[in-house]
Design a protein around this nucleic acid. Sequence first.
DNA 1: CCTACCGATCGGTAGG
DNA 2: CCTACCGATCGGTAGG
Lengths: 193, 193
Amino acid sequence: MTSDSSQTIKKRILDAASHLFVRGGYNGLSMREIAEMVGISKPALYYHYKDKDDLILAMLIDCLEEYIGLLDHGLKTSTSTYESLEGIVQSIFALPDEKRALIYMAEQEVVHLSTQSRDQFNRLYQEKFINKIKRIFEEGMVCGELRQMDVALVTHLFLGMVFPFFRHPIGNVKNLSDITLSIFFNGVAQQHV
Amino acid sequence: MTSDSSQTIKKRILDAASHLFVRGGYNGLSMREIAEMVGISKPALYYHYKDKDDLILAMLIDCLEEYIGLLDHGLKTSTSTYESLEGIVQSIFALPDEKRALIYMAEQEVVHLSTQSRDQFNRLYQEKFINKIKRIFEEGMVCGELRQMDVALVTHLFLGMVFPFFRHPIGNVKNLSDITLSIFFNGVAQQHV
DNA sequence: CCTACCGATCGGTAGG
DNA sequence: CCTACCGATCGGTAGG
């Protein structure tokens, strides 16, 4: 229903917003700055998005959906728990730094959204992202690859280990991914065999 | 040199600031709000602290020093790597929720401080906090409790696992600490013995 | 520590 | 009467 030029300008607005969002979060970015970066007037933003809350929510959901696509793509070809997680970690580590930083900050900054927007983002995040990772762990326990643990907690711990790397540039993607997964699977303790 | 009443008011200012900081970060808190909460005028804040940057830095360092004290206290009585980390994790998990949330947010929000303040905080954080945890891992590798790994990376991964719990209330401190350390030491994989 | 303010910038909206 | 905007300014609030 929307014309091509409208799609283009919306995309450019969200790109500018995400760039500024990564720099300083919700309160560290102004509608003026977004407008300036896109090269349109500030009121023009309000033609495309009801208000700041609406714009930032659209930007965050846009980014989240890209991650969900990455997740789904990585899960198609995997044959083991390790391979599944490896696919996810490597594809995320290989993203542009700004894209990784964005999803990292999203979690911190959702508090600044309205209640409705926050709920909407969290619902999508929970259903399409967290739950898919949970399912990987559940399957790993069922087929005996993993020991029995609280699935929610393990998911929490796994994401915790990976998340700090969302903030900074990553040098050797393969190497970092290998070490991280090695510790997560086998632990840091000396093996007494 | 500072009078008792000045100490008291400074403490009350930092308490109010930390409460508001946890709620919305650096840009989500105003000098007016702090003044209101303390029950003084806004300009009165500027008598005690040069500017917002100065006040927030003082508050963050105050909090960080409490954590450093916790760390040092926990390390005195430990006899193994596991015990050292257990002591740290449990004492942190046992803190009031707001105190944990504060140090969690500190890491996210330092970008909003001036370059000097950010450097000052990061230096203290690195020297008195990160380096002490690094040393635990180094010793664990030397005495054979841990396998050989990149110390900085392991420290990063360990803090990553623990950090997400800084944001939310913790039910069973002992239980959560045990599971977290168990996974970090032995991994999630089924043991093939 | 107060009242009384400032330059600037915030998110959002007016008429055309 | 539509769309995609503009220059100017609104009421409030930021740090100082």
